[in-house]
Amino acid sequence: MKIKLKIKRSAPLNESEPFFQAFSIDAYEGMTVLEALLKIADEDDPTLSFRKSCRSAICGSCAMTINGHARLACNTQILPEIHKFGEVILEPLSNHAVLKDLMVDLAPFWEKMERVMPYLTPPDAENTAKMTSEDEAKIDKSQQCIMCGSCNSECNALEIDEHYAGPAALAKAWRFIGDTREGFAEKRLDKLSTEHGMWDCVRCGHCTQYCPKNVAPLKAIELLRSRAIKLGITDNHGAKHALSMTNSIKRVGRLDEAAMTFKTLGFLRSLGMIPFGIKMELHGKMPLPLILPQIDGMDEVKAIFKTFEEKDKNKEDSGGKS
């Protein structure tokens, strides 16, 4: 089947404007995007730049934007794309500077990775080998990362804030913080709880949706956050936000917007919200504190909370970390 592949070409060094170029190829059943690119580079245009190595979704080199979203070229077939979208459009990964054509500068990706110190630091030399398979299961997914950069390319927080730690590095952070042999989990979580850290995730779910290896970075971020709260690292807006939501449900079974704003931001920053609050009130949108009715059956909600509080207490008494 004769099809057209539209490829975004850029050569920032030439200071030329990026443009789309169409290449016509014979696509066969099972042909991957990478196979098509190799054919084009071989037969039509040897200057076409893209990264590749293993061709079997192991090395993570060939991630690019295929019909709008980050995927591996070696892991995506041409014909299903044609059937679904009517065309195949190839662009470099988003959220990264383009070096040439489909190649981006991954230096920021590696810098973010290095910043979470991706290596195990046991408290003492003897404590390096003990781990049950149950313990391992908790960090299993986060070990499957092939560093392709798809998640960081899709991340909406990173799209706006280039300093954000990003899903790849945070999933890697959980791989070590969630490791029972790690000795400095608390220190690591302290560091991740600062500005541009793990609480800046917008929960857009792109990372988990498009990861080719099912690493589920958003789940890792949730686990990091839970661990930080349980360890008492709560002096930041993100943890306060989660805590005030939880307390609101425990108290009235539902969200108490006014209390939540106040508890998350604190007194002084809440004062800054007053002009906005007045504008909201003019449209009848100001949430009213204190008169919030609670849901029916609060005794049930309280009983459920109690079972978990007892669980946490038992864990503390037995000396184990949650």
């Binding site: 609480w199 917008v202 807006h237 936000h241």
Partner: peptide
């Protein structure tokens, strides 16, 4: 994303 989840955080 609209940004809502981090209105009060970032």
């Amino acid at each position: 994303c609209c940004g809502f989840q981090i209105d009060l955080v970032a």
